Simulated scan of single mutants.
Amino acid sequence: MSSESLCYWLLLLVAHFSLSPSRATAGKVSAIIVFGDSTVDAGNNNFIPTIAKGNFPPYGRDFDGGVATGRFSNGRLATDFFSEAFGLPSSVPAYLDPSYSIDQLAMGVSFASAGTGLDDLTAKIASVIPLRQQLEYFKEYKERLKLAKGESMAKEIVAEALYVFSIGTNDFILNYFVLPLRPAQYTAPEYVTYLIGLADAAVRDAYDLGARKIEFTGLAPFGCVPSARTLNHDEPGECNEEHNQLAMRFNAELQEAVRKLNGDLAGAQVVYAETYSVVSTIIANPSFYGFENVAQGCCGTGLIETSVLCGLDRPLTCQDADKADPRRRQLRASPGARR
């Protein structure tokens, strides 16, 4: 995502939760609390036994001090920018990182795990943290808040926090399109509906735990990530439009689920965050947004780049993630394909 588009989307989100009248508490966000996959994993996978890690170069190249924190990005994640936009710290820490105190986590925390999905089976593939376990960590986090801040303050932090869910792509690219179990049980449209049911349940669980301001991010056109282009046997190098159609179907059903959640959950404000059209616009007209190559990745070989593969063949890593090396460029902050 380009910096211009990201900033525009951030401004809309900040305006929505800070200025618009709503059934949730308006005008204040106490913390950013995050659930999801590598799009928002701030380093939790560093502390579990999995190969799905981003704690080596070129990850973190443009982060403070050039440190690879476990974020699957050359720099900060969207949720880090959210935090800064709401006047909170400039980055959201990983819950499992023991170097952060509960006082720091009280202003923002990520429970996300790269490689996970809405479907528990997706998390098992790379031995990462399933969404249900992320919600269990949130329960534990609430108890730690009570001990550190007192019950009244802990309730206020939980009630006024912004909850971000960014998850779903891996259920397709690591699970449904790779393993035989789910295709044997569901057609592709049926699997989308199954995933939306899991998304709906996760939001309701978060609500039961005190969440009131909730944002659920839609899927980007994952048929256009470099790995999908590389593995597109019908049109090598081109976007896989079948995959993109499923992303659009998921987004349409997610928007309907969000409408229902807002009707069902008293006092809640649930927002759908559109990413598909933003990324599609950049892909369709890359030069307008300062990109030179939207077909190859910014690390590894540029063809199937994610996790450990990003550490291979480093000379091919693009030199400037903002300016775009003519040979190696992807869609903004992440040097790896969406995980």
Rank of each mutant, 00 (worst) to 15 (best):
A106W: 05
Y59W: 07
A324L: 13
G43E: 04
E151V: 14
L19M: 12
V40E: 09
N45L: 06
L162N: 11
S127R: 05
A324Q: 15
T169I: 13
L198N: 07
L118Q: 02
D103K: 11
L209H: 04
M153C: 08
C298N: 09
I167T: 13
I32D: 05
I282W: 04
G290C: 06
L6P: 01
Y194M: 00
Y141K: 13
S287W: 01
T193C: 05
V308F: 11
L13P: 03
A206Q: 05
F17A: 12
P98N: 07
A188R: 05
D62K: 05
V192C: 13
Y191K: 08
L181T: 10
S91W: 04
I157N: 02
L6K: 08
E253R: 14
E253H: 14
P183T: 04
L162P: 09
S227T: 10
P57V: 08
F177N: 08
R332C: 12
T25S: 15
Y207H: 02
L174V: 01
G237R: 12
N285Y: 03
A148T: 06
R329H: 00
I51M: 14
F72E: 15
V178W: 13
L121H: 09
G168R: 06
R204A: 14
P98T: 05
N74W: 03
N244R: 02
N74H: 15
V225C: 00
F250C: 10
F291I: 07
V192M: 09
A202W: 04
L118R: 00
A247R: 12
T217K: 06
R182D: 03
L162T: 08
D64M: 03
V203L: 10
V92Q: 03
T25N: 12
Q269P: 00
R144M: 13
L19N: 14
P221C: 08
L147Y: 15
G65K: 08
A78H: 04
L195R: 00
L13E: 06
K155Y: 10
A321F: 04
T275E: 01
Q255N: 13
L179K: 15
N170K: 07
L198Q: 14
E140N: 15
Q319D: 08
E215V: 13
D80K: 07
F172C: 10
V203N: 06
E274G: 00
F86G: 11
L12S: 10
G218L: 09
T187V: 02
A78G: 08
V192H: 06
M248K: 15
E151W: 15
I196Y: 00
I33V: 13
R61E: 09
N44G: 07
P189T: 02
G297R: 13
R249F: 08
S20T: 09
Y8E: 05
G302D: 02
R144V: 09
L147T: 14
A284G: 12
Y141P: 02
Q133A: 12
S127E: 05
E238I: 02
T275H: 08
I282H: 10
R259D: 12
Y191N: 04
F222K: 00
R76E: 07
G290M: 08
F86P: 10
T25F: 14
E242K: 03
E305G: 15
D103I: 08
G117F: 03
C298K: 11
L19A: 15
V278S: 01
D41T: 10
G302V: 04
H243F: 01
R314G: 11
T169C: 15
G311A: 12
P236E: 02
P315L: 10
T69V: 07
V192S: 06
F222T: 02
C318H: 01
